Computed example of a mutant assay.
Amino acid sequence: MIDEVDAALLALLSEDTLPGTDIQVAFDAPTKEWTARRTAPTVNLFLYDIQEDMSLRQEGSAVEYDEDGAVVAEHDAPRYFSLSYLVTAWTSRPQDEHRILSILLAGLVRHDVLPPARLTGTLAGLGLPVSMSIAVPPVRDRGLADIWTAVGGNLKPSLDLVVLAPLAGSRVRAAAAVTDGLRLHASDAYTGADESRRLNLPDVPAEDPAAALGVPRERELPAERRRRGGGSRPVGPRR
């Protein structure tokens, strides 16, 4: 799911927000070593925090049907995670960096959700909105200055981008539909003959109402057993 959010953001910035420019998009940690290797104007999206939004956790499962309306699987409810990105611009002049940040802010603030056309993989398959916010004060106690200290870089103007993305729950396939009827195995107490047959008899005449309702017909007893009084007599030791 995280790589799918990265891909959606990359497409959104490259094709919608910064089209026709030579500005690169990266997802590296903005360390001093990375800054020294940079050779072109760059927008960097550093994923610095991943946390589950517990207020959106749901219980239960959803049922998946096929084209014929049969149940094929059950899915646990998706769980939502906040992905926080530190967005910075890198050029040789601060004025150019401010201009790029202004373009990013104007472009991203128009989107409350990632455009569905940019979603791929499981995010596209779920069909759920992937919300996003830009430059909203973080609800956590940790400030962005602490992030710069952690990565060993120099403090720069930045935008805090938060994407709330669903993670697909586990999928349990349903058991295959039963297409074969119950098989009945019987043994004749008088002759010792065995018989095995299915209860859902094929090609039942339409005038047989019991069979039309799926009720199996009773097997006709042999003539010899009818003369003896039927097959309901208990079998026991002879006296």
Rank of each mutant, 00 (worst) to 15 (best):
Met1Pro: 04
Glu4Gly: 04
Ala8Trp: 12
Ser14Asp: 02
Glu15Trp: 05
Gly20Lys: 01
Thr21Met: 06
Asp22Gln: 08
Phe27Lys: 12
Lys32Asn: 14
Lys32Tyr: 01
Thr35Tyr: 09
Thr35Gln: 13
Ala36Phe: 04
Arg37Glu: 09
Pro41Leu: 09
Val43Ala: 04
Asn44Asp: 07
Asp49Cys: 12
Asp49Met: 13
Ile50Leu: 15
Ile50Ser: 05
Met54Phe: 13
Met54Asn: 05
Arg57Cys: 10
Glu59Val: 15
Gly60Phe: 04
Gly60Val: 06
Ala62Ser: 14
Ala62Asn: 12
Tyr65Leu: 11
Glu67Lys: 15
Glu67Cys: 03
Ala70Phe: 02
Val71Leu: 02
Val71Lys: 06
His75Ile: 00
Phe81Gln: 07
Ser82His: 03
Ser84Lys: 06
Thr88Glu: 08
Ala89Val: 11
Arg93Thr: 11
Pro94Gly: 02
Pro94Lys: 07
Gln95Arg: 10
His98Leu: 11
Leu101Gln: 11
Gly107Met: 03
Arg110Asn: 07
Pro115Ala: 10
Pro115Thr: 07
Ala117Cys: 01
Thr120Cys: 02
Thr122Val: 13
Gly127Arg: 09
Met132Ser: 01
Val136Ser: 11
Val136Leu: 13
Arg140Pro: 02
Trp148Ser: 08
Ala150Pro: 04
Asn154Arg: 13
Leu159Gln: 06
Val162His: 00
Val162Ile: 14
Val162Arg: 02
Val163Gln: 00
Leu164Glu: 01
Leu167Cys: 06
Leu167Tyr: 08
Ser170Asp: 15
Ser170Trp: 11
Ala175His: 07
Ala175Phe: 04
Ala175Thr: 09
Ala177Lys: 15
Thr179Met: 11
Gly181Lys: 02
Ser187Lys: 03
Asp188Arg: 04
Gly192Cys: 02
Asp194Gly: 03
Leu201Cys: 04
Leu201Trp: 07
Pro202Lys: 11
Pro205Asn: 07
Pro205Lys: 11
Ala206Ile: 10
Ala206Met: 11
Ala206Leu: 11
Pro209Trp: 05
Ala210His: 12
Ala211Arg: 15
Gly214Gln: 07
Pro216Gly: 12
Arg219Leu: 14
Glu224Gln: 12
Gly231Asn: 13
Pro237Leu: 02
